[in-house]
Protein backbone atom coordinates (compact mmCIF):
# COMPACT_ATOMS: atom_id res chain seq x y z
CA UNK A 1 0.00 0.00 0.00
CA UNK A 2 2.73 2.43 1.04
CA UNK A 3 4.70 1.45 -2.04
CA UNK A 4 1.69 2.24 -4.23
CA UNK A 5 1.28 5.62 -2.61
CA UNK A 6 4.95 6.30 -3.19
CA UNK A 7 4.36 5.71 -6.88
CA UNK A 8 1.38 8.06 -6.93
CA UNK A 9 0.58 9.59 -10.32
CA UNK A 10 2.17 13.01 -10.33
CA UNK A 11 -0.97 14.53 -11.80
CA UNK A 12 -2.60 14.07 -8.37
CA UNK A 13 0.14 16.27 -6.94
CA UNK A 14 -0.42 18.81 -9.71
CA UNK A 15 -4.13 19.01 -8.83
CA UNK A 16 -3.30 19.53 -5.14
CA UNK A 17 -0.91 22.36 -5.99
CA UNK A 18 -3.45 23.96 -8.33
CA UNK A 19 -6.10 23.92 -5.60
CA UNK A 20 -3.68 25.25 -2.98
CA UNK A 21 -2.94 28.17 -5.29
CA UNK A 22 -6.45 28.89 -6.47
CA UNK A 23 -8.46 28.72 -3.25
CA UNK A 24 -6.44 31.30 -1.26
CA UNK A 25 -6.41 33.61 -4.29
CA UNK A 26 -10.21 33.46 -4.43
CA UNK A 27 -10.66 33.58 -0.64
CA UNK A 28 -7.66 35.39 0.88
CA UNK A 29 -7.04 35.25 4.62
CA UNK A 30 -4.60 38.14 4.92
CA UNK A 31 -2.00 36.75 7.30
CA UNK A 32 0.46 39.28 8.75
CA UNK A 33 3.80 39.59 6.94
CA UNK A 34 7.03 40.29 8.81
CA UNK A 35 9.39 42.81 7.19
CA UNK A 36 12.89 41.43 6.70
CA UNK A 37 15.93 43.70 7.17
CA UNK A 38 17.23 43.24 3.60
CA UNK A 39 13.97 44.59 2.13
CA UNK A 40 13.84 47.42 4.66
CA UNK A 41 17.35 48.48 3.60
CA UNK A 42 16.19 49.15 0.03
CA UNK A 43 13.21 51.09 1.34
CA UNK A 44 15.33 53.10 3.78
CA UNK A 45 17.85 54.02 1.11
CA UNK A 46 15.16 55.39 -1.19
CA UNK A 47 13.68 57.24 1.78
CA UNK A 48 17.07 58.82 2.45
CA UNK A 49 17.46 60.18 -1.09
CA UNK A 50 16.61 63.87 -1.43
CA UNK A 51 13.97 64.83 -4.03
CA UNK A 52 15.48 65.16 -7.51
CA UNK A 53 17.98 62.34 -6.95
CA UNK A 54 18.46 60.02 -9.90
CA UNK A 55 16.96 56.54 -9.50
CA UNK A 56 17.60 53.97 -12.20
CA UNK A 57 15.34 50.93 -12.28
CA UNK A 58 16.54 48.15 -14.56
CA UNK A 59 13.74 45.70 -15.22
CA UNK A 60 15.86 42.71 -16.22
CA UNK A 61 13.18 40.09 -16.58
CA UNK A 62 10.82 38.66 -19.13
CA UNK A 63 7.09 37.95 -18.86
CA UNK A 64 7.81 34.55 -17.31
CA UNK A 65 8.93 36.16 -14.06
CA UNK A 66 6.15 38.74 -14.07
CA UNK A 67 4.25 37.35 -11.06
CA UNK A 68 7.24 37.83 -8.77
CA UNK A 69 9.04 40.85 -10.18
CA UNK A 70 6.25 43.01 -11.58
CA UNK A 71 4.78 43.75 -8.09
CA UNK A 72 8.27 44.76 -6.96
CA UNK A 73 8.52 47.18 -9.88
CA UNK A 74 5.10 48.63 -9.04
CA UNK A 75 5.99 49.12 -5.37
CA UNK A 76 9.45 50.58 -6.08
CA UNK A 77 8.16 52.97 -8.73
CA UNK A 78 5.38 54.15 -6.45
CA UNK A 79 7.93 54.79 -3.74
CA UNK A 80 10.33 56.62 -6.07
CA UNK A 81 7.63 58.84 -7.55
CA UNK A 82 6.24 59.59 -4.08
CA UNK A 83 9.72 60.72 -3.09
CA UNK A 84 9.92 62.92 -6.21
CA UNK A 85 13.00 61.15 -7.51
CA UNK A 86 14.02 61.42 -11.13
CA UNK A 87 13.25 57.94 -12.47
CA UNK A 88 15.07 56.26 -15.36
CA UNK A 89 13.64 52.92 -16.46
CA UNK A 90 15.36 50.42 -18.73
CA UNK A 91 15.73 46.71 -19.43
CA UNK A 92 18.53 44.37 -20.46
CA UNK A 93 16.07 41.68 -21.52
CA UNK A 94 14.53 42.24 -24.93
CA UNK A 95 11.37 40.25 -24.21
CA UNK A 96 10.71 42.37 -21.15
CA UNK A 97 10.63 45.68 -23.00
CA UNK A 98 6.89 46.08 -23.50
CA UNK A 99 6.05 45.00 -19.99
CA UNK A 100 8.71 47.27 -18.47
CA UNK A 101 7.54 50.28 -20.43
CA UNK A 102 3.98 49.67 -19.38
CA UNK A 103 4.75 49.59 -15.68
CA UNK A 104 7.06 52.63 -15.73
CA UNK A 105 4.73 54.87 -17.72
CA UNK A 106 1.63 53.51 -15.95
CA UNK A 107 2.82 54.26 -12.42
CA UNK A 108 4.25 57.61 -13.55
CA UNK A 109 0.90 58.73 -14.93
CA UNK A 110 -0.82 57.67 -11.69
CA UNK A 111 1.47 60.15 -9.89
CA UNK A 112 0.99 62.85 -12.52
CA UNK A 113 4.61 62.71 -13.62
CA UNK A 114 5.64 64.03 -17.02
CA UNK A 115 7.57 61.87 -19.46
CA UNK A 116 11.02 63.27 -20.21
CA UNK A 117 10.81 65.72 -17.30
CA UNK A 118 10.23 63.53 -14.25
CA UNK A 119 10.93 60.13 -15.75
CA UNK A 120 11.95 58.33 -18.88
CA UNK A 121 12.08 54.78 -20.15
CA UNK A 122 15.26 54.10 -22.10
CA UNK A 123 14.05 50.76 -23.42
CA UNK A 124 16.27 47.88 -24.47
CA UNK A 125 19.73 47.96 -25.96
CA UNK A 126 21.42 44.74 -27.12
CA UNK A 127 24.66 43.52 -25.61
CA UNK A 128 23.72 42.42 -22.11
CA UNK A 129 26.47 43.28 -19.65
CA UNK A 130 28.29 45.34 -22.29
CA UNK A 131 25.42 47.82 -22.15
CA UNK A 132 26.23 48.45 -18.49
CA UNK A 133 29.88 49.19 -19.34
CA UNK A 134 28.72 51.52 -22.13
CA UNK A 135 26.37 53.32 -19.77
CA UNK A 136 29.16 53.71 -17.24
CA UNK A 137 31.25 55.51 -19.83
CA UNK A 138 28.61 57.42 -21.74
CA UNK A 139 24.94 56.90 -21.11
CA UNK A 140 23.85 58.70 -24.26
CA UNK A 141 26.10 56.43 -26.35
CA UNK A 142 24.45 53.32 -24.95
CA UNK A 143 20.97 54.80 -25.38
CA UNK A 144 21.15 57.63 -27.98
CA UNK A 145 17.36 57.91 -27.80
CA UNK A 146 14.86 56.72 -25.25
CA UNK A 147 12.14 54.16 -25.98
CA UNK A 148 9.95 56.91 -27.44
CA UNK A 149 12.60 58.20 -29.86
CA UNK A 150 13.55 61.36 -27.93
CA UNK A 151 17.27 62.23 -27.77
CA UNK A 152 18.45 61.06 -24.35
CA UNK A 153 20.96 63.87 -23.86
CA UNK A 154 18.25 66.52 -24.39
CA UNK A 155 15.78 65.16 -21.84
CA UNK A 156 15.31 67.41 -18.77
CA UNK A 157 15.14 64.31 -16.56
CA UNK A 158 18.69 63.45 -17.65
CA UNK A 159 20.07 66.88 -16.70
CA UNK A 160 23.56 66.38 -15.29
CA UNK A 161 23.45 62.64 -15.93
CA UNK A 162 26.04 61.73 -18.53
CA UNK A 163 26.98 58.31 -17.18
CA UNK A 164 26.23 55.89 -14.38
CA UNK A 165 28.55 57.88 -12.13
CA UNK A 166 25.82 60.50 -11.66
CA UNK A 167 23.12 57.98 -10.79
CA UNK A 168 22.33 57.94 -7.08
CA UNK A 169 20.68 54.56 -6.82
CA UNK A 170 20.28 51.61 -9.15
CA UNK A 171 17.92 48.74 -8.50
CA UNK A 172 18.01 45.74 -10.81
CA UNK A 173 14.92 43.56 -10.79
CA UNK A 174 16.36 40.41 -12.27
CA UNK A 175 15.31 36.92 -13.22
CA UNK A 176 18.80 35.77 -14.25
CA UNK A 177 21.75 37.07 -16.25
CA UNK A 178 22.24 39.89 -17.07
CA UNK A 179 20.96 40.93 -13.69
CA UNK A 180 22.03 42.00 -10.22
CA UNK A 181 25.48 40.39 -10.38
CA UNK A 182 26.17 41.98 -13.76
CA UNK A 183 25.17 45.37 -12.39
CA UNK A 184 27.58 44.89 -9.53
CA UNK A 185 30.56 43.53 -11.48
CA UNK A 186 30.31 45.82 -14.51
CA UNK A 187 28.53 48.77 -12.90
CA UNK A 188 28.86 49.52 -9.22
CA UNK A 189 32.37 48.12 -8.94
CA UNK A 190 33.60 50.49 -11.63
CA UNK A 191 31.31 53.50 -11.44
CA UNK A 192 30.58 53.69 -7.75
CA UNK A 193 26.80 54.10 -7.51
CA UNK A 194 24.75 52.42 -4.80
CA UNK A 195 23.03 49.21 -5.88
CA UNK A 196 20.02 47.28 -4.65
CA UNK A 197 18.53 44.07 -5.99
CA UNK A 198 15.15 42.49 -6.50
CA UNK A 199 15.12 38.91 -7.74
CA UNK A 200 12.98 35.83 -8.12
CA UNK A 201 12.86 33.53 -5.08
CA UNK A 202 14.87 30.87 -6.87
CA UNK A 203 17.96 33.06 -7.22
CA UNK A 204 17.62 35.15 -4.05
CA UNK A 205 19.66 32.79 -1.80
CA UNK A 206 22.58 33.17 -4.21
CA UNK A 207 22.74 36.91 -3.58
CA UNK A 208 23.04 36.83 0.19
CA UNK A 209 26.87 36.77 0.10
CA UNK A 210 26.77 40.06 -1.85
CA UNK A 211 24.41 41.52 0.72
CA UNK A 212 26.70 40.83 3.66
CA UNK A 213 29.73 42.31 1.94
CA UNK A 214 27.85 45.49 1.00
CA UNK A 215 28.15 44.77 -2.71
CA UNK A 216 24.40 45.30 -2.78
CA UNK A 217 22.79 47.39 -0.08
CA UNK A 218 19.47 45.56 0.04
CA UNK A 219 17.61 42.65 -1.47
CA UNK A 220 13.98 42.04 -2.32
CA UNK A 221 13.58 38.31 -2.79
CA UNK A 222 10.64 36.71 -4.56
CA UNK A 223 6.96 37.31 -4.02
CA UNK A 224 7.58 37.48 -0.29
CA UNK A 225 10.01 40.38 -0.72
CA UNK A 226 7.59 42.13 -3.04
CA UNK A 227 4.81 41.76 -0.47
CA UNK A 228 7.05 43.21 2.24
CA UNK A 229 7.85 46.22 0.03
CA UNK A 230 4.18 46.72 -0.74
CA UNK A 231 3.49 46.88 2.99
CA UNK A 232 6.36 49.31 3.53
CA UNK A 233 5.02 51.72 0.91
CA UNK A 234 1.48 51.20 2.18
CA UNK A 235 0.17 49.80 -1.04
CA UNK A 236 -1.13 46.25 -0.72
CA UNK A 237 -1.08 44.84 -4.23
CA UNK A 238 -0.73 41.56 -6.03
CA UNK A 239 2.23 40.37 -3.98
CA UNK A 240 0.39 40.63 -0.66
CA UNK A 241 -2.59 38.93 -2.26
CA UNK A 242 -0.38 36.09 -3.47
CA UNK A 243 1.23 35.39 -0.11
CA UNK A 244 -1.68 33.30 1.16
CA UNK A 245 -1.45 31.13 -1.94
CA UNK A 246 2.27 30.76 -1.35
CA UNK A 247 1.65 29.78 2.27
CA UNK A 248 -0.79 27.11 1.14
CA UNK A 249 1.47 25.66 -1.56
CA UNK A 250 4.44 25.57 0.79
CA UNK A 251 2.38 23.66 3.33
CA UNK A 252 1.13 21.26 0.67
CA UNK A 253 4.72 20.54 -0.37
CA UNK A 254 5.78 20.11 3.27
CA UNK A 255 2.88 17.71 3.72
CA UNK A 256 3.86 15.78 0.59
CA UNK A 257 7.47 15.47 1.75
CA UNK A 258 6.38 14.22 5.18
CA UNK A 259 3.94 11.78 3.58
CA UNK A 260 6.51 10.46 1.15
CA UNK A 261 8.93 9.84 4.00
CA UNK A 262 6.22 8.16 6.02
CA UNK A 263 5.39 5.87 3.09
CA UNK A 264 9.08 5.31 2.52
CA UNK A 265 9.64 4.07 6.06
CA UNK A 266 6.43 2.01 6.03
CA UNK A 267 7.53 0.22 2.87
CA UNK A 268 9.02 -3.22 3.64
CA UNK A 269 12.80 -2.92 3.66
CA UNK A 270 13.81 -5.84 1.39
CA UNK A 271 14.28 -4.62 -2.13
CA UNK A 272 11.72 -1.88 -1.97
CA UNK A 273 13.37 0.98 -0.11
CA UNK A 274 15.14 2.05 -3.25
CA UNK A 275 12.08 3.06 -5.17
CA UNK A 276 13.79 6.29 -6.06
CA UNK A 277 16.06 7.11 -8.90
CA UNK A 278 18.12 3.98 -8.41
CA UNK A 279 15.36 1.98 -10.09
CA UNK A 280 14.19 4.67 -12.42
CA UNK A 281 16.20 3.21 -15.19
CA UNK A 282 15.15 3.78 -18.76
CA UNK A 283 12.83 1.21 -20.10
CA UNK A 284 11.56 0.06 -16.70
CA UNK A 285 7.80 -0.56 -16.71
CA UNK A 286 7.18 2.00 -14.01
CA UNK A 287 9.03 4.68 -15.90
CA UNK A 288 7.09 3.91 -19.04
CA UNK A 289 3.84 4.53 -17.25
CA UNK A 290 4.91 7.69 -15.51
Amino acid sequence: MAGKLLRMDRRVIFVLIALATLIPLLRPIGLPIRISPEVKQVYDYIESLPPGSVFLLSLDFDPASKPELYPMAVALLNHAFKRDLRVIGMTLWVTGTGMAEKVVSGIASEHGKRRGVDYTFLGYSPGGTNVIINMGQDLAAAFPTDHYGERTADLPVMRGVTSLRQVNYVVSLAAGTPGVESWYVYGKEKYGFELGGGVTAVIAPGLYPFLDTGQINGLIGGLRGAAEYEILVGLKGKAVAGMDAQSATHFIIIGLILLCNLFYFLTPRVGSRSVGRAQNRPGSPREAGR
Partner: peptide, 14 residues
Protein backbone atom coordinates in the same frame (compact mmCIF):
# COMPACT_ATOMS: atom_id res chain seq x y z
CA UNK B 1 5.75 25.13 -8.95
CA UNK B 2 4.09 21.88 -10.00
CA UNK B 3 7.39 20.24 -10.90
CA UNK B 4 8.97 21.25 -7.58
CA UNK B 5 6.14 19.54 -5.75
CA UNK B 6 6.32 16.32 -7.74
CA UNK B 7 10.13 16.19 -7.60
CA UNK B 8 10.05 16.83 -3.85
CA UNK B 9 7.53 14.03 -3.31
CA UNK B 10 9.55 11.58 -5.38
CA UNK B 11 13.06 12.40 -4.26
CA UNK B 12 13.06 14.12 -0.84
CA UNK B 13 13.54 10.99 1.23
CA UNK B 14 15.67 10.53 4.31
Amino acid sequence: GFFVASAAFRAFRA
